[in-house]
C-alpha cells in the first residue's frame, strides 16, 4: 500500500452502471479506510428504494445522508433522490436543490467538484457507464486539484458516452475493467 490512501472515493454512473456498482458493493470488505459516495442518475420523483436495493453488502448498509451529516470512513453514501450532494470543509454533507444539471438531480459534476475542493489529493473519482455527458467536467476538476481519476473502459461499458466524454476531458484518467474495480481501490 502506498502512503496516500484515499480518504474518499466518489463513483458516478448512469445507464448501465447499476450492475457495476452492485457488484462492487457486494465485494467490499468489512472495513475500508475511505468513505464511498455513489452518485447515480435516478428519477427525480416517485418512490425510490435505491438505497435498499443497493444494500448488498453483508457488513455495511447504503445510507442516503441527511444535510450536514458527518462524512466518515467505512460508510457507503448514496446521493439522495432530487438533491445534488456537496461536501463542506468540515467534512459534512450539504444538500442542494438547485437546477438540474445534464437533466439530472443528483448530478455527478457538482459532487466531483466539491469533493475535489475539500479533499484534494485524498480524493478518487470513478466515472462509469452512461449515455449522458455528466461527470466529465467534475472529474477534470478533481484531477486538477490533485485527485486520482478512473474511468470504466468504454469498450466494456454498456453505454459508452459517459466514459468517452470523461476520457476526452480527462485524458490522464486510468481506464478500468469493471471486474477490477475492487482490486484497484485497494491497491492505490
Amino acid at each position: 500500500m502506498s502512503h496516500a490512501l484515499p480518504e474518499i472515493v466518489v463513483i458516478g454512473g448512469s445507464a448501465g452502471s447499476f450492475p457495476v456498482v452492485s457488484k462492487l458493493i457486494e465485494q467490499l470488505p468489512e472495513t475500508f479506510s475511505f468513505a464511498l459516495i455513489l452518485v447515480m442518475h435516478r428519477q427525480k420523483s416517485g418512490l425510490s428504494e435505491m438505497d435498499k436495493v443497493l444494500s448488498l453488502n453483508k457488513y455495511t448498509k447504503v445510507i442516503e445522508p441527511n444535510d450536514k451529516d458527518q462524512i466518515v470512513p467505512n460508510q457507503i453514501y448514496l446521493a439522495p433522490q432530487n438533491y445534488h450532494l456537496l461536501v463542506e470543509n468540515d467534512r459534512t454533507f450539504s444538500l442542494d436543490y438547485s437546477e438540474t444539471i445534464h437533466y439530472s438531480r443528483p448530478s455527478i459534476d457538482p459532487t466531483f467538484e466539491s469533493v475535489a475542493d475539500v479533499y484534494g489529493q485524498q480524493a478518487v473519482g470513478l466515472l462509469l457507464s452512461g449515455s449522458n455527458t455528466d461527470g466529465a467536467r467534475g472529474l477534470a476538476h478533481l484531477v486538477q486539484m490533485g485527485g486520482k481519476a478512473f474511468i470504466q473502459d468504454p469498450s466494456l461499458s454498456e453505454f459508452s458516452i459517459m466514459p468517452l466524454t470523461g476520457l476526452k476531458q480527462v485524458p490522464e484518467a486510468t481506464l478500468i475493467n469493471p471486474s477490477e474495480i475492487i482490486n484497484c481501490l485497494f491497491s492505490l
Partner: peptide, 12 residues
C-alpha cells in the same frame, strides 16, 4: 450560508 453551495451559486 453553506460554503459549498454558496460557492457554486457564485460560479453559476
Amino acid at each position: 450560508y453553506s460554503r459549498a453551495s454558496f460557492t457554486r451559486r457564485v460560479k453559476h
